[in-house]
Simulated scan of single mutants.
Amino acid sequence: MKDEEDGVWIVEYDPGWAEKFERERLLLQVLQADISQIEHIGSTSVPGLAAKPIVDILMGLQQLIPTDDQIRSLEQLNYVYEGQVLNIPEHYFLRKGMPRLFHLHIAQPGSAFWQRQILFRDFLRAHPDQAQEYVCLKRSLATQFRHDRKTYAARKTPLIEVMLSQARAWQRQVQE
């Protein structure tokens, strides 16, 4: 694997990302009896938002921990199982492609991880000014940390936490 193949690159929004998600969603139906819910998350799920050209998929299984058979089925679709990479008990991770094409996040629907991903996506979709603030930070960090994914992600966290706080307040308003 070459460094540039797995670097952090932010590109302009591609309407094809939604289509890629839908096509991959169909392939993932190999686990159809085991899937309770599947969602397009991350920046590629926010229309108009520049992003890393990697489609993030959030998949809920009937049980949290993927079985050996499920992992084998996903590996047949060229996913690489990486386990719990974020030290979050309710999150399992797989990636596909090099350069990366898809990130598959397995979590329990309703878990804190699940709710956070959906809330952040929905907040950015509904608040274009915050979405642009987020993409400006991502572009800056991608330039500084092109070959350091962990630092890139860690440096986004403070702004994400602020936006999640705003998102929770927005969610409460919408529900009233």
Rank of each mutant, 00 (worst) to 15 (best):
A126L: 04
F113S: 00
H147L: 11
F113E: 00
F145I: 04
L94D: 00
Y134L: 03
M59V: 10
T157R: 14
I35K: 02
Q63P: 06
K138D: 04
A153L: 10
V80S: 08
Q171M: 11
A18E: 12
I54V: 10
P47T: 05
A112I: 13
D129F: 06
M59N: 04
K2F: 11
E161Q: 13
Q84Y: 01
I10V: 14
A169K: 14
P89T: 04
L31A: 00
L28A: 00
I57E: 03
I106Y: 00
W9I: 09
G48V: 07
K138R: 14
Q84V: 03
L77S: 06
R72L: 10
G83Q: 03
Q171N: 13
L28G: 01
C136W: 05
D14I: 04
P89K: 15
N87E: 10
S45K: 09
Q76T: 14
Q115C: 11
A107R: 00
L28Q: 01
Q70R: 00
F145H: 14
V135S: 14
D148P: 12
E161G: 03
W17H: 01
A169S: 11
S165M: 11
Q70L: 01
Q171P: 08
D129R: 13
E4I: 08
V30K: 06
W9C: 08
R25E: 04
A142T: 05
V46Q: 13
Q37L: 11
F120S: 02
R168E: 07
E75F: 13
E75D: 06
S73F: 13
I106F: 00
I35N: 01
D14A: 02
A131M: 10
W17E: 00
Y81F: 10
M59W: 10
Q144D: 07
D68R: 15
R146E: 04
Q132K: 14
I88G: 05
K150Y: 06
